[in-house]
């Protein structure tokens, strides 16, 4: 009897912690329906959902969040994969290169924002360099890259951390490719280029895709970066949720939860997609 229960007992602590997580989600759902007994709200209603779904600013925020996440994830994947490919091809790459690039991964997003402040504001380092190179004549000619409606500062902050992350996981999976498969492709008539695009690249694609999903999901639900350098309109979704949550007007609380629930729903879809991609990885690499 103990034998059968053993794995479950070993998993008990982790499931206790995860149940806090799940309860958080369930609680958010309940609160989104207006059920917050602690505040005296006990009536279940769809009113808050209607409010949100009828609000144009919500959809602007949603679109903005999706745009930011997609752009930063996409750029990270493009540049990251390419750099990883170059490092992979150049076997003689020094140890320095292979360790240094990982630094941004350990740096928290808030500091990444500070770096954007330092480098890319109108009074920042890049602007000074451009002035001294004669490209711009005064401070104002440097574009506004923070607090801007294009979210450029946000995207750069996320990309700064995203590129090394993608390099890391891409190199990780490239290392695992059995090089004899490449030899086989060459022997069957493929050129080195064809072997890359027909064999190596398709094999690492699911992994790159999971990397994109992780970056997208993180930036989609993250509060700090858009709060620090995002525009006041449109705001990113987590920032909107936070503002409504901390509002003195407690009746906005359920609305905040609606936004949280929507963020979570979208994330759960991403979890599903992630799992599918993961299955492909297992199929290709055993």
């Amino acid at each position: 009897m103990y034998k059968k229960l053993k794995p479950y007992l070993m998993l008990l602590p982790v499931m206790v912690v995860m149940s806090v997580f799940i309860l958080g989600l369930i609680s958010a759902v309940l609160q989104s329906f207006g059920y917050i007994p602690i505040f005296g709200m006990t009536e279940i209603t769809l009113r808050h959902y209607m409010n949100i779904l009828e609000s144009r600013s919500f959809f602007r925020a949603l679109a903005f969040s999706i745009y930011i996440s997609f752009a930063s994830g996409g750029i990270s994947v493009f540049i990251g994969t390419y750099v990883a490919y170059l490092i992979y091809r150049n076997k003689k790459e020094t140890l320095w290169v292979r360790t240094l690039y990982k630094i941004p991964i350990a740096v928290p997003h808030a500091i990444a924002v500070l770096l954007v402040f330092i480098m890319l504001t109108q009074s920042g380092v890049l602007s000074r360099i451009l002035y001294n190179l004669g490209v711009i004549d005064n401070l104002m000619e440097f574009p506004e890259l923070i607090f801007d409606r294009g979210g450029v500062g946000i995207i750069i902050a996320y990309t700064w951390k995203g590129i090394p992350f993608i390099i890391m996981i891409t190199l990780g999976i490239l290392k695992k490719i059995d090089l004899r498969l490449v030899d086989t492709a060459l022997n069957l008539g493929a050129s080195k280029k064809e072997a890359w695009w027909q064999v190596e690249f398709p094999m690492i694609l699911p992994t790159i895709f999971t990397g994109f999903i992780l970056l997208f999901a993180f930036s989609f639900g993250a509060f700090e970066v858009p709060f620090l350098i995002g525009p006041s309109a449109p705001r990113a979704l987590p920032v909107v949720a936070y503002i409504q949550y901390t509002s003195i007007d407690l009746s906005l609380r359920p609305q905040a939860m609606v936004i949280n629930v929507i963020i979570s729903m979208i994330s759960l879809i991403l979890v599903y997609v992630y799992i599918l991609a993961f299955r492909s990885i297992k199929k290709y690499f055993g």
Binding site: D178, R180, L181, D183, T184, A185, L186, N187, L188, G189, A190, S191, K192, V199, P202, M203, S280, K283, Y284, F285, G286
Partner: peptide, 18 residues
């Protein structure tokens, strides 16, 4: 390498997994 007219089949089979 890719102009060979001799094709090799290995004991490890090496089919393209994807």
């Amino acid at each position: 390498e890719n102009e060979s007219r001799a094709v090799i089949v290995d004991q490890n089979v090496l089919l393209f997994p994807h």
